[in-house]
Computed example of a mutant assay.
Amino acid sequence: MSDTTSNATGLLRSGLPSYLALLKPRVMSLVIFTATVGVFAAPVAVGPLNAILSLLFIAIGAGASGALNMWWDADIDAQMRRTRNRPIPNGQVTPRAALVFGLALSVLSVAALWAVSNALAAGLLAFTIFFYAVIYSMILKRRTPQNIVIGGAAGAFPPMIGWAAATGSVGIESLMLFGLIFFWTPPHFWALALYMHDDYTRAGVPMLTVTHGRAVTRRRILLYSVVLAVISVGVGVSAIGGPIFLAAAVVLNVALLRGAAAISARGEDAAGADRYETERRFFRLTLYYLFTLFAAIWLEAAIGTAGF
């Protein structure tokens, strides 16, 4: 039986839902959303069909990154409560099938995005897949506590790719969108790492909580939250900002900084099931924070297009 036939048989046997899970749908939804904002916030109008196709292929590229990440991290995933039911650890998809699937989608997404938009957008997508699968997953994640800081760039590229698909260029505004996600990522994931500390320790992943301790992690969350708040205000006074964004940023930054300060000041003497409730609340807040700010950028763009 040929490799191609074997892989196709594997797909049918494992079932489509298992392969869809390899794409990390929740992460993909965030990628689609931020890339969409990048497209519509750009100063160049894009036809509906081109916009839809560009976003589809950006999403497929994000899914390819997820599949390659799960292939490489299958041993770690099997040891963590949060990830042990992923398709490879639970035996629904073989590592080889996941690798072939991820590589095939990578090539497809980059080539197709080039065909429907431009070489810059396709190049940025290719670099994003490489960065997430190789730089972050294979090099940074298991070697340095800066894994989330540097690796966060992978999640910050989608709005830049969307902007490039629309304009064929990288503007200062798209770099600001990149910065917004880049500085959002560490406090978001460090909050998760605080209450998933035992999982990362067991899996041997050198998260900041494991290598430097919880106290240092708490202070870093506050530091990055301050930088994030400053960047968000900068976006508000840029060409893609406006009064709606600034109002949202002020309210959200107050909540963000209050939450980060509460985490920074908290000791480790709490006990019981709600020991890390402060961190869980902050983690959820960061999700609302990013979604709301990007939604505000989209709304500002819609108002500007309508001529109000």
Rank of each mutant, 00 (worst) to 15 (best):
F308G: 13
L22G: 12
P158F: 06
T94G: 02
A164D: 08
A261E: 14
A119W: 01
T128V: 09
V170K: 03
L22M: 15
I88D: 05
S29D: 10
R219K: 11
R86H: 10
G10R: 04
A262M: 10
D77R: 10
E173T: 01
M28H: 02
N90S: 15
I231N: 09
A166L: 06
P206V: 04
A301N: 03
D3C: 09
S174N: 08
T305R: 15
A62Q: 01
I244D: 00
P89M: 04
F127R: 08
R96M: 10
D269G: 08
A248E: 03
A153M: 12
T9C: 11
I297N: 04
V107P: 10
A51F: 00
T211A: 09
Y288C: 14
P48S: 14
G155W: 05
I303Q: 13
D75K: 14
L53C: 01
G155C: 03
F189A: 07
L12G: 00
G204R: 13
M196Q: 14
S117H: 05
G47I: 12
T83H: 04
N253C: 12
T36Q: 08
N118E: 02
A121H: 00
G66R: 06
L223K: 12
D198E: 15
Y200W: 07
N85M: 14
I244Y: 11
L246V: 09
T94Q: 08
V44T: 15
T167P: 01
F183N: 10
R275G: 04
L49F: 14
S174F: 06
A249S: 12
M160Q: 00
S169R: 14
G171F: 12
L125E: 11
P145M: 08
V216H: 12
F57M: 00
F131G: 07
I244S: 01
D274T: 11
A41W: 06
Y288E: 11
F131K: 02
G151H: 10
A229D: 13
I129M: 02
D75H: 12
T211R: 11
F283C: 08
I221A: 09
G152K: 05
V210H: 12
S6E: 15
L192K: 06
A193D: 03
L55P: 10
L287C: 03
R281F: 00
I88E: 00
Q92K: 14
T5S: 07
L140Q: 08
G63T: 05
S225K: 07
M70A: 09
P25N: 05
P159K: 01
L228N: 14
S174M: 09
L256W: 03
A203C: 02
L140V: 06
G91F: 08
A119R: 05
F157E: 06
V227Q: 02
L124I: 06
T292F: 01
I58A: 04
L177H: 07
T185L: 06
L299Q: 02
V44A: 13
Y288K: 14
P187V: 02
I135T: 07
R218A: 13
V134W: 15
F308Q: 14
N147G: 07
W163V: 04
A41P: 11
W72I: 12
W190D: 04
T292I: 08
A41L: 01
F127G: 06
L55A: 05
R82K: 11
F178Q: 02
L53R: 02
I139M: 09
R258H: 12
F101N: 03
W190V: 02
